[in-house]
Design a protein around this nucleic acid. Sequence first.
DNA 1: CTGTTAGCGCATTCAC
DNA 2: GTGAATGCGCTAACAG
Lengths: 343, 343
Amino acid sequence: MENTKTIYDIAKEAGVSASTVSRVVNHKPGIHEETRKKVQALLEKYNYIPNEAARGLVTQSSRIIGILIEDIRVAHHTESAYVIEQEMTRLGYTCITLSTGPDPRKKADCIRILEQRRVEGVILMGSMFGTREVEDSIREHLPHVPIAMVNGALDLPNVYAVLSDEERGLEECASLLIGRGRRCLAFVEDLETPSNHKKRRGFQTAMLRQGVPQESQWIYFAYQKPGEDADPEHTIRRGRETTRKILAEHPEVDGILYSVDLLAIGGLEELKAQGRNVPGDVAVLGVDNTLYGTICTPRLTTLDNKLVEVSRNACRMLLDALEKKDISHRMLLPTEIIQRETT
Amino acid sequence: MENTKTIYDIAKEAGVSASTVSRVVNHKPGIHEETRKKVQALLEKYNYIPNEAARGLVTQSSRIIGILIEDIRVAHHTESAYVIEQEMTRLGYTCITLSTGPDPRKKADCIRILEQRRVEGVILMGSMFGTREVEDSIREHLPHVPIAMVNGALDLPNVYAVLSDEERGLEECASLLIGRGRRCLAFVEDLETPSNHKKRRGFQTAMLRQGVPQESQWIYFAYQKPGEDADPEHTIRRGRETTRKILAEHPEVDGILYSVDLLAIGGLEELKAQGRNVPGDVAVLGVDNTLYGTICTPRLTTLDNKLVEVSRNACRMLLDALEKKDISHRMLLPTEIIQRETT
DNA sequence: CTGTTAGCGCATTCAC
DNA sequence: GTGAATGCGCTAACAG
């Protein structure tokens, strides 16, 4: 902190009291124009900037927003975090953005860090936050802080949820393929998250409607190996391996729906390696509408779950909650199928 | 802040003084085991967590690190930010991560925000920070705060730089192509940053050694349109357009080096569209070793500038500076060519 | 071992 | 219009 000037230093040099300086800094009315000028000049001379910690202590407001993300390296999380940070910064808040990782204990640690900094609001991004452990953590450490969840939900009075209607989205994806004559569809689920569960349910609903009972549906899980993190390359590899398994067990498959784009990218690789034509032999579909889908060959058809829009709304919702507006606790946003070359 | 307990509340209920509670909280020695137990129990009962702002005010340390990134959505920045945030968090620091955008004034705003929060150290990521405006801003607002730059440099006593030796890297890339008989090479530069200048210089050195004088070298600039941001899709489009221009002006081109992967991705698209075989007719080379390069077809040969490693070192350097260790102000790290299918 | 006192930098009464 | 006094929550001497 070295030699940073305080309002007292400024006050002394200006020959006024600290409160006068404070008033000038905060643009309060009722100050003689001359003294205001004099003080203002000194503030600029020393590049004075108030210490937010001290200010927050007396105003009882930190002007800090906490953003908890499972893993900011995940492409759609990055963009969401960006959007929220920009908007919050624009409004004078400072964001503390933390990647929590999958471990519930690390999530709890991050929540404690936010409490320590006395955040005024929190954004939770990623559906792995909708767990019992997180719920307890919030109840204990942030019971009165408004919290907005991006594509996740928790039943707590201070928690608001904005969700992407992925269940319906995946139902439509499956219907699309069925409508084009595909009969042997498989679904690959990424992780055991509420979000991915919902996608699976959407798939299952569509299949059921086709007369395929649940027990004969081809549902696969691209499980993470223990200790493996969300590194995108791993996800691709898992998509590849799972696809290999599908092709071995059900060579007649003619359509695969993956719960995230990166898995589909891996699938594409495996299909190509095995000489299957996409979409001729097998149609492929991802979720997230990431940039990856426009780069791979053939370009990937994907379900855009509109996570950026979801984030924008979560941000808005949190701001409304901070202003004590009364708002609904839940919002559901529609998805959109982006048709490209794999279907 | 509602009803958060303070050490006074705890002290009163425990029948001790606030300082005793403070001592327990901070694990200071010299406390009777019994009173420690009693206080500890209450701390846990109320989930007490100290207010860092108040603590920082008296200890004169915020335990906050500022991370300024030009745009966190840029793939390699994301990963670098992740690495640094994880390490800093592990060591008990809290990170404030801000995407500044290209505008120098917004960069200055962000620097002011960091001063306002009295950060103890700063990481600057992206070579657009090596400008006069930023230098002035730092001199004015953060003259005594240790600052570590990721792949950028600034000549200030409190600034430390870790750089990727991209100049030499690109020289080697060009030499590689020349060694394989390519004679008509073009270079596409992304933005006017020191980092990209260095890449160009490396290319030029290699060409000069081949006897191609500077004025006959094919240097192209994939300029951003005014107001256009760093959205990855724009970069791909710019790569595509620039490549179209190259093919029109120099149909005999047999190798193109792009200063970033995404430009190369766009180039690949255009080459494919014009029926040029890669690498048969034209070799293609990118920089950054992003995931994109493994997803496109053919898979992209790229110069890995080791930005994650650069970031790790910048982080370590900053920590050393915070501990007043005396360290060198500059570090240069070697790059590595990742050969895949486009060369 | 523990309590008292003081002060970090600032905003906010309340007098004048 | 302006200044003096007070306290936000906490740690750090200094006594005892």
